[in-house]
C-alpha cells in the first residue's frame, strides 16, 4: 500500500469508530416498544366459584365450575397456546360415541379464558359417562378427547 492509501484506511476506520457505535446504539435505542392493550375477546362470563372437576393438557386447562347450590354449571376453557387448527369446537358426547351424537358447547379461538354456560348434565356424577371432544369442523377431524 502507498502512504495515502494507508492514511485513507486509517481515516475511514477513525470515522467508522465514531459512526458504528452511534449507528448501532442509536438503532437499539430507537427499537419500538409495542404497548399492552386490554383485549375485547373472549368476552367471558364471570366464573362460578366452585371447581368441581379439572383436566390439564399441554395446550389448555378445562374446569367444570358450579355455584354453591349446584343449580348452575359452567365449562371453563383456559386456552394456553395458539390453536394450530382451522377451527376448534367443543362437543359433549356419550363415551365412545361420535361427534354426530354430541351436544355443541361452543368454539375456542385465540389464547384466553372461555366460559360456557352448561346444563346439569355436567354434574360430576353424570359426567363419568360422557366425554368432551375438541373438534375441527373444517377438516372434520377430532383434535382431542377429554375424559373426566
Amino acid at each position: 500500500m502507498i502512504k495515502p492509501l494507508r492514511k485513507r484506511h486509517l481515516q475511514i476506520w477513525t470515522a467508522l469508530a465514531v459512526l458504528l457505535p452511534l449507528g448501532i446504539i442509536g438503532a437499539r435505542i430507537a427499537t419500538p416498544k409495542f404497548p399492552a392493550q386490554t383485549l375485547l375477546q373472549p368476552d367471558a362470563a364471570k366464573p362460578l366459584p366452585d371447581i368441581l372437576k379439572q383436566r390439564e393438557k399441554d395446550n389448555y386447562i378445562v374446569f367444570i365450575r358450579s355455584n354453591p347450590q349446584r343449580s348452575a354449571f359452567q365449562l371453563e376453557w383456559l386456552n394456553k397456546n395458539p390453536l394450530t387448527w382451522p377451527s376448534a369446537t367443543i362437543y359433549k358426547v356419550p363415551k365412545g360415541s361420535s361427534v354426530n351424537k354430541g351436544i355443541l358447547i361452543g368454539r375456542i379461538e385465540s389464547r384466553g379464558t372461555y366460559r360456557f354456560t352448561v346444563d346439569a348434565a355436567f354434574e360430576p356424577e353424570k359426567l363419568s359417562t360422557a366425554q368432551l371432544i375438541l373438534y375441527d369442523f373444517i377438516h372434520e377431524q377430532i383434535i382431542d378427547t377429554i375424559n373426566f
Partner: peptide
C-alpha cells in the same frame, strides 16, 4: 361464514 351447528341454548358455532 360457515356454520357448524347450534348448541342446546340455541347459540351458533360458526367461523
Amino acid at each position: 361464514k360457515v356454520m357448524s351447528g347450534k348448541d342446546l341454548l340455541g347459540r351458533s358455532a360458526y367461523i
